[in-house]
Design a protein around this nucleic acid. Sequence first.
DNA 1: CAAAATATGTCAATCGTTTATCACAAAATA
DNA 2: TATTTTGTGATAAACGATTGACATATTTTG
Lengths: 329, 329
Amino acid sequence: MRPKLTDVAKKAGVSPTTVSRVINNYGYLSEKTKNKVYQAIQELNYRPNSLARSLQGKQTNLIGVIVPDITNPFFAELVSSIEKELFNKGYKMILCNANYDSRKEQEYLQMLIANQVDGIITGTHNLDIEEYNKVGLPIVSFDRTLSENVPIVSCDNYQGGCLATEELYQSGCRHIDYFGNPQSITNPTNQRLKAYEDTVQKFGLKAHVHAVRFSESPTLKAVSVRQLLEQHTADGIFCSDDLTALLVLQEAQKLNIHVPTQLKVIGFDGTKLNQTYHPELSTIVQPVKEIAELLTELLCKRIENPDFKTETNQFKLPVKILRSKTTAH
Amino acid sequence: MRPKLTDVAKKAGVSPTTVSRVINNYGYLSEKTKNKVYQAIQELNYRPNSLARSLQGKQTNLIGVIVPDITNPFFAELVSSIEKELFNKGYKMILCNANYDSRKEQEYLQMLIANQVDGIITGTHNLDIEEYNKVGLPIVSFDRTLSENVPIVSCDNYQGGCLATEELYQSGCRHIDYFGNPQSITNPTNQRLKAYEDTVQKFGLKAHVHAVRFSESPTLKAVSVRQLLEQHTADGIFCSDDLTALLVLQEAQKLNIHVPTQLKVIGFDGTKLNQTYHPELSTIVQPVKEIAELLTELLCKRIENPDFKTETNQFKLPVKILRSKTTAH
DNA sequence: CAAAATATGTCAATCGTTTATCACAAAATA
DNA sequence: TATTTTGTGATAAACGATTGACATATTTTG
């Protein structure tokens, strides 16, 4: 049996009240008793039962983090950054992999509530916004519009879309295709598409939009990509994420379409992983660290003060373009 | 304020005891009252407070998962598989990114205990084994030796090492180098090295072992790799993980060393990510799904029955070789 | 119709900790 | 010396749910 507060009291030869006072550091305490208690805690390897503390009114220091897919390097890096931030602030993370499955997301949401998490960071949503409104907990969201009063952090998707499209144009492309995950209009990542459309129009070009679902298997995605490449119509492709861009590069190579001379490609996300293992890929780099910092910052503010409000609930962080070989001219 | 059991009772017009009976499904209950209660639960969006339940003696259904680095695709896939398994069994995961930092690992361990997790899966350890013995909770380990009575699951690292080395030899390599993360002898992944040494010896070749730390930055790793390649001594390299193998391929290309004609390369891990985006890389594929299944299976057995024992505490799962272009001849 | 089974309620203890209140020292200050 | 400050203990009520003991209906069965 795990030692409890009364065991520590007995060991230290003081009252339970005193032990609690030492742990929570309030009231009058002499150095001597403090040390006695600390020593007893050490010897028994005692840790206060979080459940009991939290039940009594203290925070749980648990944060629920919901993402669609942790095996996607972008989310892995985001989660890693969030975890770092949370850890430094004394919070622990319950990771929920929703897998683009609304039932799972719903179950996780209920579980997080039941486990009395102090707050939730969500980077996915396939649920009715209503479900999130019912939660009654501090929430912040990454790249998803949930509700009026849920802060939403994202990179400047529109700016990224412009930069990417312009890069292709300036590298000489005149028939620029868009490959991307089809999204609802309210989804901020949809701004990448919007920016693409606006930008090609600005240059007097036509938009060619192709939907490729994230959730689809890479094999399936590859087939769609291949079909498109076989038409040999595009001289530039803007992919809404790097993994799709890599697929395009792969299929292009198989079809002996030379990049960047015959076809230029640019992606989106710019994970460290890709920067290291695919430095040739031009891409739009999301400021993952800054996103994680802002998400946790906003959430913690809300936890400390539930009435915490900012003028706006939309936070767009600037992206950077990484020009490399796949858009060289 | 979140509704509680008594609120549900009031709403349904029954006693708190009855509500509890409905939730926990025991004693005599009429369909009518059950429905009344269910409806009240629905209307109030009530969830029993996990903290209170667990404090009362029920399980927390929380499992701590400790890994060194979630941004490493291998661990991302492992964590993803573990999460799937746990979710299906009704458990939730607290993800701990230890970052090769023993202080952080220690803090996380304490936190998991304080949060009364039902069990721990650990895939890293930089702590004294003693720390883990003190835990007094069901633990299972991936690829790390913790203690006599902690089950340890890993792929058959030795078999993998043999397969990899043999593959290089059979593809014609006669000067085979080993690039890997230096490990303590007790670490099961060290068996990859052992297998390499045994196998080259079997073929009458000399072993050439080069240490490259996982925890080092890719840039630093790349430098070591480059230095080695510049010597142009090896005609085959066995890397103890795929990421290092990719680095070797990259540096080889920069130095105009052609793979596989001048140099053959084989990695280890075989993540889905690499299989998709680097199908050219020959590698040893770890059975991630099976590892995750076994880990959770063993842990759950221990949770249900703390005295659960198996004849052995070492579980080695067979690996598969994936022959591809980087070892073609 | 009596006995058993079914259905619900009341009450209280429990889990481990926090925290307020009251009490009573001993030490420091006026 | 009288008073305040400081240090400690004892006691009890929370937090929200579970569960056992017991009482009391109502319904079903023999």
